[in-house]
Amino acid sequence: MKPKVAFFDFASCEGCQLALLNCEDDLLAILAQVELVEFREAISEQAGRYDIAFIEGSIHREQDIERLYDIRSRSKVLVALGACACNGNVQARSNFVAPAENYKAVYGEEDRNRVQVDGEYWPLWTHTRVRAVHEVVKVDYQLRGCPMQPTEFLHLLKSLLTGREPSFPANAVCVECKKNENECVYDRGLACFGPIAFGGCDAICINSGHLCDGCRGLLPYANVKAHRQLLKEMGIDITSVQNRYRLHLSNEPDAGEVRR
């Protein structure tokens, strides 16, 4: 029997599922190997148990947590798909801002006042804290990145289908920058998260002339202290450093911040 594979989305842009649909060449080969049972971007169906459940998005509300518990209990292997699921991504930034301030920033003063007295107002915003999937349930594998890397997705699926442990080397983005012979972002006088961020993305942002903001999360051995010091020495003020860290890394336990 073909393994049952399901995709579930929580708070996210669903861009990772789109990235998967971009694996056009290999998509048919994948479909021949698995039974796709739940995939909002493509089909709509319900199935009882899953061999592999892919979770996209961060976890915000009580009902999300319950839904996630339910999926976990029905899944053999659970994979966090993309940065939102792996570390809370940009959403987790709101963990550092009082909810009312968020409402004010987005909807204005009047709505902020209203939400404070009317609990039913803007229910989407009544979360307590933005969490990565592994902060709620056990995660077997992480597919990092914003969006996730299709080659890593294929590697994971191939490995799982052939009973092999997938390998996601804990290498810095710098490794791929060197392999691609990119000019170092620091040579351009800009600050980059490459030295402390999880690679595996082929340094795609730097390849295209941008810099790394660490969407794939911090390496387990990330030298955050040295990195913050370096940014400071480059003359970047502490608020800007903080903002850079908060873009994708708010929920990283070692990002050197105290979370709300």
Binding site: N171, A172, C174, V175, K178, P195, A222, N223, A226
Partner: peptide, 13 residues
Amino acid sequence: GERCYSCGTCNLV
């Protein structure tokens, strides 16, 4: 080592 990122650049170049 205190300020090293263990990024591997020195080896790769």
